[in-house]
Design a protein around this nucleic acid. Structure first.
Length: 420
RNA sequence: GGAGAGAUGGCAGAGCGGUUUAAUGCGGCGGUCUUGAAAACCGUUGUCCAGCAAUGGACCGGGGGUUCGAAUCCCUCUCUCUCCGCCA
């Protein structure tokens, strides 16, 4: 969430940022400012009454210890009315604060000034292209490849769980495992500490990274225990340091986890084969950094992710996302899209974002500045990388006319074979 | 799952109804001394909210209650530890 002081002092900027992100109206900003003003008034009234009450209680104590019981009784009698008033004010303060915070959670982060203003994917800017697009017509889409070879069993996945929960069989399972190991090893080389994280999180964690409110519907839940199945490792890994003051920055983590997403409303070619699943594997990169360095850290994060695609020899492009195509929580975002030669289309395999202090404020993740005062860190994350679409791209890029699939050079050591 | 014990500042650890504005020690920071360092000594050192500031308020695991007054008493929840049970 945004700082209420910032909203107070930069009201127009916040409203413009909301509009650029595609929000239809900004009334919520005025609403939150009004409620904040009420809250501050109530709070100072309550503080003052409490101050008087504390002073009275203290003088009762003094009189009692001096044996002046009757004088003490007089003050005790005076106190009854004030007591009720304090209780009443406290209730009003709490209710107002709750309302204010609920509204604050619903105001999006505002885009960085460098971000192109736009409302559709056409307004995204391609900032980097690597490799050449394979366009041979003999290349089959990955779903044909895997069904002919029996490497991915979608039907049995439907039987056992439902659509979007496939089984990977034999070589596909091994390729998946090789990719996970390769990504984690590269993460370690780039200075990210490996973390094995919980696959379920509590409500506070889901709120910390911004899944709650409003995006609950994207997550699977375990109602009986109050858990959410993680939609990305970003949630547990960023929350690792929730409510902490960090000793040194930056802090960099990589983590492999499965991810679960309900993906309500998706259909058609978007969900064909491995394009969009309810459960998929991903290696995630997370950084907690000093505010002065966060945009440099975003560039190096992006390069770390791009390096993985390059070493795998996969044609990709990097998009600088426009204001309207960014999420609720980001200030700046790059998407990496890999070329799928069988489908002849781009597939998103990584999203690298800076959140500035938006998540850190919710999670109270801080460091100490040169004066020893706690300050909020900036948080960033990026996929490094999402597995199924990388796998599609490999199956389509490395297939030979004979139907065999060559193993990318960097994975040969992991798989111990030339061909899958 | 059952029984018992516990949760206090960066850490350790007192306090169990009114000089607690949370003792004391360690650690951190500043200083004296020293060519420099160590040791010793002196000072200082929590977080959050409102306020330009002075200042005021909140916080002793979370929530609620008793009281003029709660770290301290009561209820409740969560977590940790010890023992028993179960178990990959």
């Amino acid at each position: 969430m945004l700082d209420i002081h910032f909203i107070r002092e930069n009201t127009a900027l916040v409203k413009q940022g909301m509009l650029n992100k595609g929000e239809k109206e900004t009334a919520i900003v005025d609403q939150v400012l009004g409620i904040d003003e009420t809250w501050r008034k109530l709070k100072s009234d309550a503080d003052q009454l409490r101050n008087e009450s504390n002073a009275r209680a203290k003088s009762v104590g003094q009189l009692m210890s001096q044996g002046k019981k009757e004088e003490a009784q007089v003050i005790i009698a005076e106190t009854a009315a004030a007591k009720d008033k304090i209780k009443e004010l406290d209730a009003a303060v709490d209710a107002t604060e709750l309302e204010r915070n609920e509204l604050l959670l619903r105001i999006p982060n505002i885009p960085h000034t460098s971000v192109p203003v736009g409302s559709t994917p056409d307004d995204n800017v391609t900032v980097h292209i690597w490799g050449e697009a394979l366009t041979d017509n003999w290349r089959k889409p990955h779903w044909d490849v895997v069904s002919e070879l029996g490497w991915i069993d979608f039907e049995r996945g439907v039987k056992v769980t439902g659509a979007g929960f496939p089984f990977y069989v034999g070589p596909a399972a091994r390729l998946q495992r090789a990719l996970i190991n390769y990504f984690l090893d590269q993460g370690a080389k780039n200075g990210y500490q490996e973390l094995q994280a919980p696959y379920f999180v509590n409500e506070d964690s889901a709120r910390g990274t911004g899944q709650i409110p409003d995006k609950e519907d994207q997550m699977y839940t375990v109602p009986r225990d109050g858990f959410f199945a993680i939609p990305t490792a970003e949630v547990p890994v960023t929350n690792f340091h929730r409510d902490e003051i960090l000793g040194s920055l930056p802090v960099k983590y990589c983590a492999y986890t499965p991810c679960w997403r309900r993906e309500a409303g998706s259909y058609g070619k978007d969900v064909r084969g491995l394009n969009r699943l309810h459960q998929f594997d991903k290696v995630e990169l997370v950084k907690l950094v000093h505010p002065d360095t966060s945009y440099d850290e975003l560039e190096s994060l992006r390069r770390d992710a791009e390096g993985l695609l390059e070493s795998l020899g996969l044609h990709y492009r990097t998009l600088f996302m426009c204001t309207g195509d960014m999420g609720f929580t980001q200030t700046k975002k790059y998407d990496l899209e890999v070329w799928s030669p069988g489908q002849k289309r781009w597939l998103e395999v990584s999203s690298c974002s800076n959140f500035e202090a938006f998540q850190a404020r919710r999670m109270k993740i801080r460091y100490r500045d040169e004066n020893g005062k706690p300050q909020l860190v900036h948080t960033l994350n990026g996929s490094g990388l999402a597995l199924p679409r990388v796998m599609s791209a490999i199956l389509e890029t490395y297939q030979e006319p004979s139907g065999r699939i060559l193993v990318p050079e960097v994975l040969k050591g992991y798989l111990g074979a030339e061909y899958l």
